[in-house]
Design a binder for these strands. Structure first.
Length: 345
DNA sequence: GCGACAG
DNA sequence: ATCTTGTCGC
């Protein structure tokens, strides 16, 4: 009766050991100093930094294994987007603290590979990663992992602190607020062992919550900090922020999978009866995912979810269109008619 | 032993 | 990561 059942999802302790070994091996290739051909200052001779990439993954709220991976590239000078690509995937592994890379790196590397293979002129010279670099229990976080495997200079950006070497949120906050640091916008993260793991940075003037910068691969902390400062319009550097925004937007559109039928062109009586509905529709129609003759897909704001009971039984007029609203459990008393999943772009 | 733990 | 409500301020 010692049957070993397969573990399609989840991570066994054997996985843990394998992961640790893999991280140890990859870490031998890690380069922790500036190692690139470009320069920051355009006055100098030669290649200058022009294309900065950012990667992020957003998740489905319905099914946490469904995710949208996003790669963006921004012009370093203007911070304008010059490239974006998405990959909607089902992740096979769970998130385990300290092993984020095994969940997220493969699909992100795939996006980079695809871009490189097609000889895209905007292929990034530097990549910012939503997650830590060497600020990690074994000094090899997601940003290092991607950097080594893609052989790209990478910077890790954490929005929360991963507790390493005695570092924790409150201690860092005290350090940032300390008298001698009150004028600085960043401080080094020095652990109990005196090692410097990265930097905590107030990226926006007066912002309380810092971001946590650590080197990924082929870059020094000093250079990484400079580049992060330059690319911060808001708290999170723009390449990461754009990847995050666009990733979330992409997946949000795919989540609109419940439908309800209403009139395509609301009659006067209909509008009078449900004035609020008209407001919603006219406001949301601009943000519609796609519009065909028969269907309009929109997302209704949460606060408009107390749908009129009337929607339960849409009239069968030929003008009827289908509105797609989020599949949520708390639509008061309205028994929505759920249609088939519609594939849309 | 227990809690803490990037996304 | 994701959920959610209002609230404050430019």
């Amino acid at each position: 009766m010692e049957e070993t059942l397969p573990e399609p999802q989840g991570a066994s302790s054997q996985d843990h050991q394998n992961w640790i070994t893999a991280q140890d091996i990859l870490r031998e290739k890690l380069i922790t100093e500036d190692s690139f051909t470009w320069k920051l200052a355009s006055q100098e001779e030669g290649e200058t930094l022009r294309y900065v990439g950012g990667v992020d993954i957003s998740f489905s709220k319905d099914d946490p294994s469904k995710a949208c991976a996003t790669l963006v590239v921004l012009d370093f000078l203007t911070l304008q987007l010059v490239f974006q690509d998405f990959s909607f995937v089902t992740l096979q592994l769970p998130y385990v603290p300290g092993f984020l890379a095994f969940r997220e790196a493969p699909v992100l590397l795939q996006l980079l590979e695809k871009m490189k293979r097609s000889n895209n002129p905007f292929y990034p010279q530097l990549l910012m990663v939503d997650g830590n670099g060497i600020l990690h229990p074994r000094g090899f976080g997601l940003a290092c992992h991607i950097g080594v495997e893609a052989n790209l200079p990478t910077i890790g950006i954490g929005k929360n602190l991963h507790h390493v070497d005695g570092l924790n949120q409150s201690r860092v906050r005290k350090l940032l607020e300390a008298e001698e640091n009150s004028s600085k916008n960043f401080i080094n993260l020095v652990g109990c062992s005196r090692q410097i793991w990265g930097a905590a940075m107030r990226s926006t003037q007066g912002s309380i919550k810092p971001i946590f910068i650590s080197i990924g691969h082929r870059i020094s902390l000093e250079t990484a900090i400079i580049i992060v400062q330059i690319t911060c319009k808001y708290r999170v550097p723009e390449p990461i922020r754009q990847a995050d925004i666009r990733s979330r937007d992409y997946i949000r559109k795919l989540e609109m999978n419940a439908k309800v039928k209403i009139d395509s062109q609301p009659k006067a009586s209909y509008s009078q009866q449900y004035p609020k509905l008209d407001q919603i529709v006219s406001r949301m129609i601009l943000g519609a995912l796609s519009v065909t003759r028969q269907r309009i897909m929109i997302k209704l704001p949460e606060k408009e979810m107390n749908l009129p009971r009337h929607w339960e039984s849409p009239d069968s007029s030929p003008n009827a269109v289908e509105f797609f609203v989020p599949l949520l459990p708390f639509i008061n008393g309205v028994n929505l008619h759920f249609g088939p999943q519609i594939g849309y772009v």
